[in-house]
Amino acid sequence: MSAAAGERPGDAGGLFGGRIRAGAGRPPLFATAICLLLVVAALGGGAIAPYVPDEADFTAILAPPAWVEGGSLAHPLGTDQLGRDMLSRLIAGARISLLTAGAAVLAGGTVGVALGLAAGYLGGVVEAVVMRVVDAFLALPFILMALAFVAALGTGIGNIILVMMLTNWARYARLVRSEVVSIKKRDFVLLARVAGLRPLPIALRHILPNALTSILVLGVLDVGRAIILESSLSFLGLGIQPPDVSWGLALAEGRTYMTVAWWLTVWPGLAIVLAVMSFNALGEWLKAGFDPRGRL
């Protein structure tokens, strides 16, 4: 499915009147800024956050956001049922969400690319076996797949990264295999083979670089999906476990207090939506430029 298909070719004018190489249409500045902000929050979380995220303060339980009656600037977004600062918890949540999503995309991408490359380049039995396994992994809705793995492997950050990797590698394998099948018929690959290069160098040095842009686009789009998956699992109590902080986990904890403290469920949800929309917008923009025919 091509999400950018509603755009007409003429829309891709952008800043320079002609085609921009990196993407199509105006670059999503706001989305990019949010993505960067999240990365900064993830990397420097502890230094930016006004409080320690799991420090309870029983003198400030369920304090509302600063602009609501009874709120104060000490806790601009309010506090939770244990008096923990919401802003600090959101920043800590960004760290976990981005770390798990990033690690899952990198790990799943690496495994998927390696298997897809092997399947596409070697063909034959390897291809048949890998692609049947890919089909089996793609046959199930990813949340169901993830739950099956969680049931076997358990919860916590390490296991969740593993689970997310197991649910996303097949997409990379399928993409890379189809790219490789078309690239390997091109002249420069045949030339390299005639020149006596061995299969591995050909695959790594000549074929892989040509598939890299599509892999990159899929990777960026995958970050949003990974964030949703992690927060869903955490919300169900089957993902990140306390004392670690995650947006989905914060939502599940805040749910009990929804009648008295809306901010416990509104902020983490907004954080998820903003993060996912930003990564998706960035990915769609890259896709429109690199993959105008919508093969991804």
């Binding site: 869903s232 939506v273 929309m277």
Partner: peptide, 9 residues
């Protein structure tokens, strides 16, 4: 928005 909003939220 529909694609980015997790169903639980």
């Amino acid at each position: 928005l529909g694609q980015a909003m997790p169903t639980f939220w």
